[in-house]
Design a protein around this nucleic acid. Structure first.
Lengths: 249, 249
DNA sequence: ATTGTAATTGCATGTTTTTGCATTTAATTG
DNA sequence: CAATTAAATGCAAAAACATGCAATTACAAT
C-alpha cells in the first residue's frame, strides 16, 4: 500500500468514525505504529486532522448529537437538497433512510408539506417534528449506531406492508459499473428492500462519492430514477444518463 | 476514550447540565476521580469552565438548540435521574419510553454500561449513541410528535416478543387513587403493554405531577415498583408506600 | 545495467504523557 | 470541633511519542 493511499484511507476512516486511535490504525492498515504516527503528524501539519495523544480527531466542532452534526460538505448538501425538494409534491408517500444529505433534504422540505414519510432513521424522524402535516411512520429494528439507523429483520418485515412513491436513498459509495454499495450487509439488505417497495428512487450524491465502492453491493446504479449531484464531469454523468438515470446538476 | 474526547464530552455535559460533580463524572465516564480533577483543572485554566469545590460550573449561557425545547425542571430531573441510575446493573434489559425525565436518565447512564434498551422514543435511542455497550432496539410505529414517540399496533405487536427486567416509564400525570394517566389512548395502550412485559417499573416523578390526572388511565399507581420523586410531603408518599410502591426521595 | 540520491519504513533507544493509587492537606458539613 | 469529602502531591506503571539509524525500495541520471 502506498503512502498516499494509506493517508487517504486514514482520512476516509476519520470521515466516518469521528476519531481514530493510532494503534488501531496500525493493525487495520498493517503498518508499524511509527508509520501511522508519521502519517498523522503529516496530516495534522497539513491541517486535515487534529492530532491528539494516542490518535487523532476529525476537524470541526466535536458534536455527539446527530441532529446538529454537520460535516464537511454541508453547503453543497444543502444546495443538492434544495434541488431534490422540487421533486416532492403534496400527498406523496416517501421512504427516507439515513445520511447527512437526507437530513439536509428533510430540513429543506416546506413546513406546510402534506405527505407520509416512512423512515428507519431516528434523526430524520425527529427533524420532521415540526412538519404538522407530515405523518411519520418509523420502522423499528436494531439501531446501528455508526449511521443512526434501524436495521434487521423487523425493519425488512415492516417494509413488506409498505408501498411508496419515492425512496430518498442515502448513498455513500457509487460506481457506474459496480453499482451502489455500503460497508455492512445489514444496511445493504434494508436498502434493497426499500428500493423494492418504491416506484422511484432519488439520491443526492456529492462528487466525492462518485466512483467509489464498498464491500456490499445493494444494486446497480440504474435503480436510481434521479441522481442529484454537484459533479460537473460530463463524461461521468453521461454514463449514468446512458443507464436511464436522470442526472440533475 | 481519548483524553480530548473525554474533555469534549465534559464540556458537552456541562452545556446541558449547568453544573457537574467530579465524582459523578468519574462514574459516568469510567475514569478515576483524579483524572476528572485533572481534566477540570485543565479546562478551567483554558477558561472553558469554572472550577469549584467538588465539581465545575458552566461559563455563560448554553449553546441554544432550538430543536429541543428546554425543560422547566431540568435540574430536578437530573437529580432524580442520578438516583434512578443506581438501580441499573450490567446486563439488564430495559424498556424506556419518552419524556424529558427519561432523557435525563439516559444521559446519566455510565458510558461503560452493558445493557439492552428497548425504546419507542427516537430521542432516547439517539441519546444512547455514545454508549458502545448498550444495544438499542427501536420499536417502530406512527410517530406521535407531541411527545416524540412511536405508537400504534406495530409498536404493541413488537412488544409481544419482548421480556424486560425493568420499564422506565415516563409519567405525566399520577394520582394515588386514580392511577397513572395520559391524554391520549395511543400512549395509554403502549404504556400498558410495556408494563405487562416488564418485571419491574420505575418512574421519576417531579412533585408537580403528583395528584394530577388526564383522560386515559393506564394502570393503578401500584404498578410502580419504584417511584423516585423530589416531593417531601410525607402524607402523600405514605399513601404510595401503602400500595407497595417503594418511594425514593 | 549501474550508480547515486531520496523516500519510506521498521526497529532500538530514551523521553514524555497519561493514568491510577497512596498519602497528606484542605475544605465542607452537621 | 469532629467527621466526611474533596483536592493536592508524589510516585510508579503503562502507553504513546520522538529520535536516530539501518535496511529497503523507488527512481533518475549516467
Amino acid at each position: 500500500m502506498l503512502k498516499q493511499e494509506r493517508q487517504d484511507f486514514i482520512l476516509e476512516i476519520l470521515d466516518n468514525e469521528e476519531r481514530v486511535i493510532a494503534s488501531d490504525l496500525s493493525q487495520r492498515l498493517d503498518v508499524s505504529e511509527d508509520t501511522i504516527r508519521r502519517d498523522l503528524k503529516e496530516l495534522d501539519s497539513l491541517g486535515l486532522i487534529k492530532r491528539v495523544h494516542s490518535g487523532a480527531l476529525r476537524l470541526g466542532p466535536p458534536v455527539q448529537d446527530f441532529t446538529k452534526r454537520q460535516d464537511v460538505n454541508k453547503d453543497i448538501k444543502i444546495e443538492l437538497a434544495k434541488k431534490a425538494v422540487e421533486f416532492i409534491k403534496d400527498d406523496m408517500v416517501l421512504v427516507i433512510d439515513s445520511g447527512t444529505s437526507n437530513l439536509a433534504f428533510v430540513n429543506q422540505l416546506p413546513l406546510n408539506l402534506k405527505a407520509t414519510v416512512i423512515t428507519n432513521s431516528p434523526p430524520i424522524a425527529m427533524a420532521l417534528g415540526s412538519h404538522d402535516d407530515v405523518e411519520v411512520i418509523m420502522l423499528g429494528g436494531t439501531m446501528f449506531k455508526e449511521s443512526m439507523v434501524n436495521l434487521g429483520v423487523e425493519t425488512i418485515e415492516a417494509l413488506n406492508t409498505i408501498r411508496a412513491d419515492m425512496y430518498i436513498m442515502g448513498v455513500h459509495k457509487i460506481d457506474c459499473s459496480i453499482g451502489i454499495s455500503v460497508p455492512s450487509i445489514g444496511e445493504a439488505s434494508v436498502k434493497r428492500k426499500m428500493i423494492e417497495v418504491s416506484n422511484d428512487v432519488l439520491s443526492m450524491v456529492t462528487s466525492d462519492k462518485l466512483n467509489t465502492f464498498a464491500s456490499h453491493i445493494i444494486a446497480p446504479a440504474n435503480v436510481l430514477t434521479y441522481m442529484i449531484t454537484n459533479s460537473k464531469k460530463n463524461d461521468v454523468l453521461a454514463m449514468y444518463e446512458s443507464q436511464q438515470v436522470t442526472v440533475i446538476n
